[in-house]
Amino acid sequence: MPRSCDTLSAPSCPDLDAILARHPAHPRYLLAALQDIQAAFRHIPREAMVRVAAHMGIPESRVYGVATFYKALSLVPKGRKTVKVCMGTACHLRGAPGVLEALENALGIAPGDTTEDGAFSLETVNCLGACALAPVVMVEDTPYGAMTPARVASMLEKERDHAV
């Protein structure tokens, strides 16, 4: 199960106060704070949005708007690693749909979902800007170029080792 920190008081939870303390109490730091929260919690907990709003002196409605606007921010817990499959034109032509299908089968989830053990989230993106490497899959910051369905299993194995 993806770890949920909705109460934010569990000892295993990252320290929200420390994250907030890093950002001055000004609306312009809203997105930076939300990105840090996303990185620490793997999602934006509801209570964190309330606390950020109070810290920066902005309405909760605006924090909620920003948190739901960006694809990099999620209101539901994400896996420890996000697998992004490029579905841009070049990747599409060179077999991205097959790679995506192999990933769906290997992880047992559809794009937008997270595996039971919280290890991986699967996402499709429209272009990673590395068309020469098509088809591209990105796991967190690591690009995997010229992907094939056959290479999916070894890629996941390699990333899973890192994940633990």
């Binding site: 309405p59 909760e60 409605s61 605006r62 909620y64 708007g65 739901t68 606007f69």
Partner: peptide, 13 residues
Amino acid sequence: SANGTDALGFALR
């Protein structure tokens, strides 16, 4: 927002 209540906002995009 002009009223100062700020109870509404845009969500998603």
